[in-house]
């Protein structure tokens, strides 16, 4: 077992524990946010191990810099009490959600049965910021433009929603 494997399994354990904290820890919204942060940071480290450094930096920058902050801000606004759970009754959404979980886990088992190899060697140039940038602005230009349009729409609609005079 080499260093990468040790780091990977440590981070994996952290992700699962902190992920459970996000979804089921009932005490406090702030704790939920910080657990979420731990999940995102550990995922970033795993991305580093998987030779995707730019994605790792993007992950940590956006999730912890934007999402985490926005959520901490929301916690400040609405208070830290997070004890409310949904009532125990069975609804259609719950059945559908449960089914989704089962399907995903079954897919994984199927995948595991087929593929049991470790990762192939990295070809030179894989994971470079330059290569990713070129891919983004040549083959995937349309997607990038669509995302930028979406972000613009989000900006405008968020302003409209929050502005007292424009809203209502």
């Amino acid at each position: 077992m080499d260093v990468t494997a040790i780091v990977f399994y440590t981070m994996g354990a952290l992700i699962v524990i902190a992920g459970l904290g996000v979804s089921f820890a009932s005490r406090d919204s702030l704790v939920t946010c910080l657990n979420f942060l731990v999940v995102m940071l550990s995922t970033g480290v795993i991305f580093l191990l998987l030779d995707a450094p730019m994605i790792a930096v993007l992950q940590i920058l956006v999730w912890s810099g934007v999402t985490g902050l926005a959520m901490v801000f929301a916690v400040m606004l609405v208070g830290r009490d997070n004890r409310t759970f949904r009532p125990a009754g069975i609804r259609l959404t719950k059945i559908a959600g449960g089914l989704l979980v089962v399907i995903v886990l079954a897919e994984w088992l199927r995948f595991t049965a087929d593929t049991r190899s470790s990762l192939p060697p990295v070809p030179p140039g894989y994971g470079d910021s330059g290569g990713l940038g070129v891919a983004l602005y040549t083959d995937y230009l349309l997607v990038v433009e669509l995302v930028s349009l979406l972000l613009l729409a989000t900006l405008v609609s968020a302003l409209v929603l929050v502005d007292r005079k424009a809203g209502r």
């Binding site: 450094p53 730019m54 930096v57 940590i60 920058l61 912890s64 810099g65 470079d128 910021s129």
Partner: peptide, 9 residues
């Protein structure tokens, strides 16, 4: 290779 971004993070 991403030292400046690392400092930012």
């Amino acid at each position: 290779a991403w030292g400046l971004l690392y400092a930012l993070v």
